[in-house]
Amino acid sequence: MANKILEKRILRSDLFYFVAEASELAKKAEAGQFVIVRADENGERIPLSLANIDPDRGTISLLVQTIGVTSTKLSTLNVGDEIKDIAGPMGHKTPIEKYGRVILVGGGFGAAPLYPIGRAMKEAGNAVVSITGARSENLLVYEKELGEFSDKVLISTDDGSKGHKGLVTEVLKQEIEENGADLVIAIGPAIMMKFASLTTKPYGVKTLVSLNPIMVDGTGMCGACRVSVGGKTMFGCTDGPDFDGHLVDWDLLMSRQRTYLAEEKKAMEAYTRGSAPSS
């Protein structure tokens, strides 16, 4: 059986970690790439970053944040179940080199791609600092995992329950000012990546972001994933997913991400009605 789920961990009520069998993919995939997943026969194709790649074991890992129908459907799968479709590895790998000091900034499912990227950056001889945040301490995830390869992990929480009280961008600014940085990689919600990019810009620190536009095929066939970078239209799936954060048109990205808000709400209502136990 292909795409079988071998492990499942619930990190938070809305965050699931899966390890799935995908031996060919695991041989080929590299940090920064993603897969297109379908949960079932009627399912939508959604992109998910590779949260870990284990070629020896023949597995890949996914970190899924439940937002709408597809991510919720995925969250109901258990060990032994099969993910209907996994296609990839899509997109380009993140350029791993010796930059010097690399700061990783992640939020929510952004930790997924940051993990293999950060590990590869460390192996390439970089000093790696990870910054992650959440609303509150009990919502923090991946702190331990990022710690596996980071020289230090800095935390921020909105309520100050752990680490810096405030935003990750404030921690980022302070870290750059105190210790400098040769590369910043920010991955997470568009708004977070936008402000991380704005934060690094005055310091002239190169900032890579992994863009998450709406996708369909992930192979350059549909153009749904159009983003504007440096005034040029590019395809998120085949030209990216990594782009120079200082050149991205963030407002366009965020606007396009909202294309199907009304439909998504309707779909979620239909799904919860359909999957609710009938009494």
Binding site: E44, R45, T70, V216, D217, M221, C222, G223, A267
Partner: peptide, 21 residues
């Protein structure tokens, strides 16, 4: 391509029975 793929391959004309909008 996107318009037709959503409709044909992904069956968006049967949304929300099919998930793709």
């Amino acid at each position: 391509n996107e318009f037709l793929t959503r409709t044909n391959l992904m069956k968006a004309y049967l949304f929300p029975e099919y998930d793709t909008p």
